[in-house]
Design a protein around this nucleic acid. Structure first.
Lengths: 242, 242
DNA sequence: TTTCATAACTGGTATAGACAACTAGATAAC
DNA sequence: GTTATCTAGTTGTCTATACCAGTTATGAAA
C-alpha cells in the first residue's frame, strides 16, 4: 500500500490511498479515520508524515479534524452556484422592471492601484471608467461604476455604453464572460450617493463588487455598485454539484 | 514581531505578519521572500515552523513556491470561490474563523403564514423555531433563526442543535440538502438585534434569507439571519452554465 | 447512584536535524 | 568562446521527539 522505495513521496501515496477509500465508499462521510499515530505505526512512518498526508486532504476539503476527537471524512463537497451572470439590464428585466440609465461619467483614466489589482493590470495602465445611474421603471435604483482595461476592451464609445457593452464585447470583440465573483456588503449611503439615489444620507445601501472573467481567467471587468437597500434585494440560487 | 510567550502559535503570528506585509505593499507580487532558513534564523524558530507559516499563505493563494528558487508573492488573490449552500459553520470555517453558537430559543410553534409559505406547508402546522447567536472567533457575527417543518425534520433536540442539525438530517433522517435560494438585503439593526450583536442600534446590517431544498425539491428549511455589516461580506462565485 | 477526578486517548504546535531535488551562478576544461 | 562541472543556496521530504490542548471513558469517592 505504501512503498518507501518509490520516487513518489510517502505522504502523497498515503493521501492518495485514503482519497481512494473515500471515493469508493470504504470510508463514509462522518466516519472517523485511524489516528495519526495509528497510521504512523501501521506504515512505519513518522507521525508528521502521516499528518502531512491528512493535511493535504483536509486542505482539499475531504477530511476535517476535531482536536481531541479525531479526523473525519467530510460531507460531500457543496460547490459553486450556477445561474446566469447578471448585468443590471438582465437583472431588472428578469424582475419585470424597465431598466434605463443616465450616464454621469465616461473617460479613460490611468488605473489607480485599487482598480489595477482586481483587473490584474499594471498601475496607471489605461482603463475606461464609466459611471451611470441605473433606474428601474424610472426610479433610481443604483449607482454603478464599471472599469474595463482599455487594452482589452478596445474602442468603447458613449454610444456603445448607452446601448450594451456586453453585446459589443461578445459580438465585436469576441470576449465572452464566463465567470464572475461578487462581493456583497451592507453599508450606509455617502452624501453624494444619497443625492443621486434620492435617499437621505445615512440610509442603508448595498455595495456590490463584481469581477468578471473570460474563459482563460483574465479579468475583463470590475464593477462597483451601490444599490438602494429599500428597493433592491440580491438573490442567488445554488446547487450542489457532485 | 514574533512573541513566543503569547498563547498564539508562532507559525500563525509569522503568517499574519507576512500577510500584512503583502497587504500594505511591503511585499509586492512577484517579489521573493526571505528563505525558510532565513526566517528560522531571524526569529530563532525552527525551519519547520517557518515553513508552516508559509504553508498557510501558500494554501490561501498569497504565496507560491518554486523548488530550488524560493518563495514568491502571488500575482493575484483571486478570492476563493467560497460559500457552500449550507451552514454558518461551514461558511466561517471556509473563512478561517472559528464558529460557535449561543442558543437563545428552541421550541415548536404553529407556523405563521410567512413561515408556512416558504416551507410550503399549511398554516399552523408545527415547526421548530431555533434562534441562535452565531459567533466567529468568539465575536458575535449574526443572529440566525431557523425553521424546520416538524413533520419532516423529526426529533430535533437541543443537543442536536448544538452539535449539527445538518449532520443529523443527513445521517439519521437521510435528508440531504441539494439546493438553496438566498436573498440578501441591506438594512438597519433593530434595538434587540443591536444588543445581541453588540453594535449600536441603527448600524447597518445584512439580512439573509435562505430556503433550502431536498433532491425532490421539498423545502426543508427556512432561515432568516441578520449579520453585522462591519464583519461580514457575502461572496458568491458564478459560472456560466452549459 | 451520582459526582468528580484522572488517565488515556485525540489533534495542535514546535524543535533539530538530515538528505533529496532543483536552480543559478561561478569555475574549470575544452 | 563554449561547454561541462562544481558549489552554494533554495524548497521538498522525512524522522524522532516533546509537550500542549481538548475529549472521553474509567474508576474512585461521595
Amino acid at each position: 500500500m505504501i512503498n518507501k522505495n518509490l520516487p513518489i513521496p510517502i505522504y502523497y501515496q498515503l493521501a492518495e490511498s485514503i482519497q481512494k477509500q473515500i471515493d469508493n465508499g470504504e470510508l463514509k462521510p462522518g466516519e472517523s479515520l485511524p489516528s495519526e499515530r495509528e497510521y504512523a505505526e501501521k506504515y512505519n512512518i513518522s507521525r508528521m508524515t502521516a499528518r502531512q498526508a491528512l493535511n493535504q486532504l483536509v486542505n482539499n476539503g475531504y477530511l476535517y479534524r476535531v482536536q481531541g476527537k479525531g479526523t473525519f471524512v467530510a460531507e460531500k463537497k457543496m460547490e459553486k452556484p450556477l445561474i446566469g451572470i447578471t448585468s443590471f439590464t438582465e437583472d431588472m428585466l428578469a424582475r419585470g422592471l424597465k431598466p434605463s440609465s443616465e450616464l454621469l461619467h465616461f473617460e479613460i483614466i490611468p488605473a489607480p492601484q485599487q482598480i489595477a489589482k482586481p483587473l490584474q493590470i499594471n498601475e496607471y495602465a489605461p482603463v475606461y471608467e464609466i459611471t451611470r445611474i441605473r433606474l428601474a421603471d424610472a426610479v433610481p435604483m443604483a449607482i454603478e461604476t464599471n472599469y474595463f482595461s482599455a487594452n482589452l476592451v478596445k474602442g468603447l464609445t458613449e454610444k456603445i455604453v448607452n446601448h450594451s457593452i456586453y453585446a459589443y464585447m461578445e459580438e465585436q470583440l469576441q470576449l465572452t464572460i464566463e465567470q464572475a465573483t461578487q462581493t456583497i456588503e451592507s453599508s450606509i449611503a455617502e452624501p453624494v450617493e444619497a443625492e443621486h439615489l434620492q435617499i437621505h444620507s445615512g440610509a442603508p445601501v448595498m455595495r456590490i463588487e463584481r469581477i468578471a472573467f473570460l474563459q482563460d481567467g483574465t479579468p475583463a471587468e470590475y464593477v462597483k455598485s451601490t444599490y438602494r437597500a429599500d428597493r433592491y434585494k440580491f438573490m442567488v440560487h445554488m446547487q450542489r454539484n457532485q
